[in-house]
Every structure is written in C-alpha cells, then in structure tokens.
Design a protein around this nucleic acid. Structure first.
Lengths: 187, 187
DNA sequence: TAAGGCATGTGACAAACATCACTTGATAAT
DNA sequence: ATTATCAAGTGATGTTTGTCACATGCCTTA
C-alpha cells in the first residue's frame, strides 16, 4: 500500500518492510475533487500532505483580495501551510485542488511520533526541508536577478509539465505578473 | 567555550556538558575583516558558518555583473551557499564581510558526523531548516503581494537593527530595487 | 440549441521603477 | 591638508508592467 510514498522515501533512506509498515501507520489516505479546499485561511491546519496524484495550489490572499500562488504541488510533493502546521497557528494561506487529487495526510502529533520512533525519517525530513529551503532561495534569486519575462521563460524550460496543466492566469499569479502582461510575452 | 553556540542550540534542544563538548569538537573558530570573502563564487564551499559576531552578506552576481544580496547574516545566524555546501558543488554565490566577523565553521563531513553521532543535533538542524524554509517562503509571499516601497517599510519595521548597520545601497540590493528608487522612498 | 462561465488576447493609458548624469557631504588614505 | 572614495539625494527621461475595457472562442449545462 502507498508504494509511491515508499519509493519517494527510499530515494533518500532505505527502509525494511517492517519500517515502512511503521511509517504507513502514521498516514491516512484522502481524496478531493477539483475546487475543493484542503486548507482554508483562518482555520486550523491539521495535516501535512503528500500528493499521490493530482495537482494543488497554495494561495495567499492579500488585503486587496488579490490571490497569489505561493506554490504548486504535483505528484510526489509535500505541501501544507507549513508555518501554521509546525507552530499550530491558524492558516494564513489556503490549499486548493486544481485537479482531482489523492493525498496521504499526517498530523503534527504523528509527524513528531514518526520522527521520534524512526531516526531515518528524521533524516528524511531534514533532507526535504534543506532542499525545500534551497529551492525557495533560488526562487528569490530569480526574482532579484530576472525580469518577469525571463522568469516566465525559465518556468517554461524548468517545468513544461506544469505549464501544460494549469491555465496561464495561474502561472501569472505564481510569477507575480498580471495575466495581461504574461499574455503579451508569447511572441 | 562558544557559549553563544550552546545557548543557540539549547533554545531548541537541551544538552549535557558532555554532549556540548562533543558538539564543540566539530567546529573551528575563524575571524575575518571587513571586505574579506568567506566564500568566492566558483570555488569549493568547505564550511557552513555560524556567526558569533559581525555581519555578512550572501551575494549573487548575475550575467550583467549586477550584484544582488540574497541574505544578510547577523549574530546567531547560520549562513553558507547551502546548495553548494550540501551537494559539494562549486559556489554560485559569494559570502562577504560587511563588518569584522567571528564565525564557527563546520565542514560537510563533520556536519554528517555530528548528526549521526548525536540525534539531538539532527533534530536541531531539522528545526533550523524547517523555519529557514518558512522564512524564505514568507519573503516570496511579500514579493508577490507588495510593492518595493511596502517591502522597504516592512524591512524597517521587522529589522530596524539591520537597517542601521548597512548602507542603503545594500538594502536596495536586498530588496530588489535600484538605489535611486529606494532613496526616493523616505518621505 | 442557447446561455452562462471561463480562459485568453489586445488596445489605450497610467503608475511604478530603472537608468543616466550630476551634485553634495562625509570619511578614509596619502 | 589634499585627494580619493563612498554613501546618498535629485532631476530628466525611458522602459516595464499594471489596470481598465472590450472582444473572441471554448466548454459546459440546462
């Protein structure tokens, strides 16, 4: 069961059958339909999510009610409002389905328990957090050093699969440009 | 020795004297003068640095030879070209002193050794990486949802100590606006 | 089949920001 | 004491991007 999770973890740390059985017990499977919310701004954040299939967007809504896409989550990604999840505060962002999506959920208590019970999993999450930080910092660098058009072209190169699965208006909300400006980039 | 490091770690995990002695053995103390480089773009990244005193800037230089400040490192911060450090690639950024600075250095081999030898330290670094990621994501959100002027005002509020220690031209390079534009924000 | 919703493109104009050139004042070096 | 060097402010001008308005085409659903 959940062979995708096992393969994902074993890219970083090898697991015996018994160890993976222990890991499995901490997760529950959930399914969501397009447009459903996994996290709503202002509510509690019960889970960290591992995406088995489908596509999610993590959205921040500003004072002008304008929506900004902080991150997309495809297959094999972990996603949540991490600040809210790790500190047990209310959500400052929402997490919404762009497509029908299957996820494995883990509560904060189970996350702690899993890391405490199996050192390999602490190492796994350390690796994930480290490279998550590096990826976020690279995005900051690309903001600092490139124009909106260049960032769009980088995205086309680096994530062609994503580009084909989401409307351009969402890519605009992710890149931080208006829909109209992005529309004028094509030629 | 290195009581600052001990206090810093003990904010997250308590340590016995023997445990801290073990931790200490993995670090070496170095001193640098203003304008010296701890990391040079294109070279190997031997260390991750913990800042005891002073101030560093992590700089990315683009194709137009324009310099962008990815991050400042004050007392009690960890800093390095993390991608290069963790993957043992060549540096893509440089790390330079803004003031005379004292750091504790740890090599990648010693980092691995420390995490393997003392589980608490793996938990410590997991906590650091997690909240480092969250902080980077918040900076992305502020890029997406605010103007240059608003980001400057946020910085003035959130890091008044930093603002007083670095020239405005560096704040501009950190915020991603020109020196001249930032200069016109004051009134 | 008709009607509504959504994604997309485009023109006109305004706002934000960058760039270049020049100046001033403070600090550091000889 | 004099010259460099650097931080910082400011005017003039151009580029990039946002906003508003409207049109088109596609898909869905009653």
């Amino acid at each position: 069961m959940h062979y995708k999770l096992r393969e994902h973890i074993e890219k970083i740390v090898p697991l015996s059958d018994a160890e993976f059985e222990f890991v499995s017990q901490h997760f529950t499977l959930k399914r969501f339909k397009k447009h459903q919310f996994l996290i709503q701004e202002g509510e509690d954040v019960k889970y960290n999510y591992f995406v088995l299939s489908g596509l999610l967007k993590l959205v921040f809504t500003d004072d002008m009610a304008k929506q900004h896409i902080v991150s997309f989550a495809l297959e094999d990604w972990w996603e949540s409002d991490f600040y809210a999840f790790y500190t047990q505060h209310k959500a400052t962002m929402s997490l919404e389905c762009i497509e029908d999506t299957e996820v494995l959920c883990i509560t904060f208590a189970d996350y702690k328990n899993l890391c405490g019970g199996l050192q390999k999993m602490e190492r796994f999450f350390l690796e994930k957090a480290t490279f998550g930080f590096i990826a976020a910092q690279r995005r900051i660098v690309s903001w600092l050093s490139s124009s909106a058009r260049q960032r769009y072209e980088q995205l086309l190169k680096q994530s062609p699969a994503l580009v084909q699965r989401v409307p351009k208006s969402m890519l605009a909300a992710y890149l931080g440009v208006s829909r109209e400006t992005l529309s004028r980039f094509s030629p």
